[in-house]
Design a protein around this nucleic acid. Structure first.
Lengths: 128, 128
DNA sequence: TTTGACCTTCCAACGATGGGAAGGTGCAGA
DNA sequence: TCTGCACCTTCCCATCGTTGGAAGGTCAAA
């Protein structure tokens, strides 16, 4: 299987597959005589795994660890769980940050007429 | 006032002040004979405005617009409000995304023993 | 043989920020 | 006056994840 098909099947673009290989997130693919990368079902499986981890917001560094744990049949699930819960914590912190921003901004916008006049509590709020 | 003092007073690092100037987010500062940037109270005010907008998660592109509107005494508040509400929408979308991630991951983690054994529903979930 | 779709590597960009090098300036103390 | 230190200047590089393009090689069908 060429990289294009692997990309289609895994949902990871060919561009990104090469990138992931270069930073060691996925193992180096085999090569044809002409130098084309060759992918197996298992390779596609790894790529799909990476895509799902990415969809859950893990960083590439974390994904690299997760792939390592996934491929290591004798890992301790505690290690995976720790990684996952750390990420949950980071997500929840980010959510709280964004919620605070959204809330403040909604508050400012609520008081703004939003018409042709120049008076604007939003700008006043930013100006303090 | 030198850039260091302006940085301290506005809460924007000297490094960033120069950067903001270079991309046109804040007006070019005056210069001393020796080439040092000179800041007035008003300049510090603009920088503080930028910092607060940044704290609310606005992009530099949006902040550039906001600074323009702020400095334009004849703006229509509708324009500011539109910008603000677009940003609120973007924030809320991002929040929803992160919440979905957090929720999925918590669900997976709940079923994981997190002990010395290798069985791990988190990895299984990512492996699907 | 030509054409078009694929593949290769390498280099650059985004956005916001930080780090550091190499060199000039300003001011206080000896 | 000299010295030292804290500050300033510009310039380039790094981060993170991803995308884009250029220049060139390969493959298969018409």
């Amino acid at each position: 299987m060429n990289i294009g098909q692997a990309a289609e099947r895994s949902g990871v673009s060919a561009k990104l597959i090469r990138h992931y290989e270069s930073i060691g997130v996925v193992p180096k693919a085999g090569r044809s005589d002409a130098g084309y990368r060759i992918y197996t079902e298992n390779d596609v499986h790894i790529l799909s795994f990476v895509r799902r981890a990415r969809d859950l917001g893990f960083s590439m560094k974390e994904i690299k660890k997760l792939v390592g744990l996934w491929r290591n049949k004798s890992r301790a699930s505690a290690e995976v769980k720790t990684l996952a819960l750390q990420h949950v914590k980071a997500l929840d912190q980010k959510i709280a940050q964004l919620e605070a921003m959204s809330k403040s901004l909604k508050q400012l916008a609520r008081n703004c007429h939003g018409d042709g006049r120049p008076e604007c509590p939003i700008l006043d709020g930013l100006s303090e």
